[in-house]
């Protein structure tokens, strides 16, 4: 039953919700760039890396969740294409069919976000895009640790990287605007009274993530976040 249409919709919704949870925590962590001192985010990153078993269990879990989300959406989308072999010669009015732009571009936004995530991991996690990141060290209270603060500023000083980052965050907004609201429908929690709350709530969540993530490269480019 997990493989049925609705079973896979549940898999996509639950994995999507877990990933939303992850990006919210990730964004909150990033906001420590504004703490006024590099120590705050460096200590936070140091803490996250101090228990390799937990870190790797978390990473593998997140990779598994992402894989489920991708597998579920691809298999559903392929069936959807097959189920509609011929489109209408004249498209109906968008206003009549109440289909939103963000909802029809989910596959595109999701694919670009996936590409971004791979780049982002190579860039800041594996640090293979710019090898100098790996040797950025600092010490807080006598403890040597990786200088995440300086790495982020150096990373976002490159306008191409900041630009790609902002485009990806814009698509994340688009993806979650539809995705976060859809979770409620798949869980069967959407009804007449709640529609407005869910739609506006999804918009606010998606916008908060866009602003939270996006403000950091913008802040670096404008010189508001400095070494």
């Amino acid at each position: 039953m997990l493989l049925s249409s609705i079973g896979r919709k549940w898999i996509v919704a639950i994995s999507g919700l877990l990933m939303i949870g992850f990006v919210v925590v990730h964004m909150t962590g990033n906001l420590q760039m504004y703490a006024g001192t590099p120590d705050k985010i460096n200590l936070y990153a140091h803490l996250l890396h101090s228990y390799p078993i937990i870190l790797w269990a978390f990473r593998l879990g997140l990779i598994g969740v992402t894989a489920l989300h991708i597998w579920g959406t691809i298999s559903l989308a392929r069936e959807n294409r097959r189920a509609k072999p011929l489109q209408y010669a004249v498209a109906g009015r968008k206003s009549r069919l109440q289909v939103t732009w963000t909802s029809v571009t989910m596959v595109i936004s999701g694919t670009v976000i996936l590409g971004f995530v791979v780049f982002h991991l190579l860039h800041f996690t594996a640090q293979v895009v710019d090898k100098s990141y790996a040797s950025m060290e600092t010490a807080v209270g006598g403890v040597a640790m990786h200088d995440v603060y300086r790495m982020v500023i150096k990373g976002f000083s490159n306008p191409w990287i900041s630009g790609f980052y902002l485009i990806a965050m814009g698509l994340l907004f688009s993806h979650l605007r539809h995705g976060a609201a859809s979770v409620f429908q798949t869980f069967g929690l959407r009804d007449r009274q709640l529609v407005q709350v869910i739609e506006v709530g999804a918009w606010i969540l998606a916008m908060a993530l866009f602003v939270g993530f996006g403000s950091i490269p913008v802040g670096v480019m404008l010189g508001l976040i400095r070494p």
Binding site: S5, R82, Q98, S103, A181
Partner: peptide, 11 residues
């Protein structure tokens, strides 16, 4: 196909 929560059906 499968519902992708666009609600053209309802409209």
């Amino acid at each position: 196909g499968n519902c992708s929560n666009q609600y053209a059906c309802e409209a």
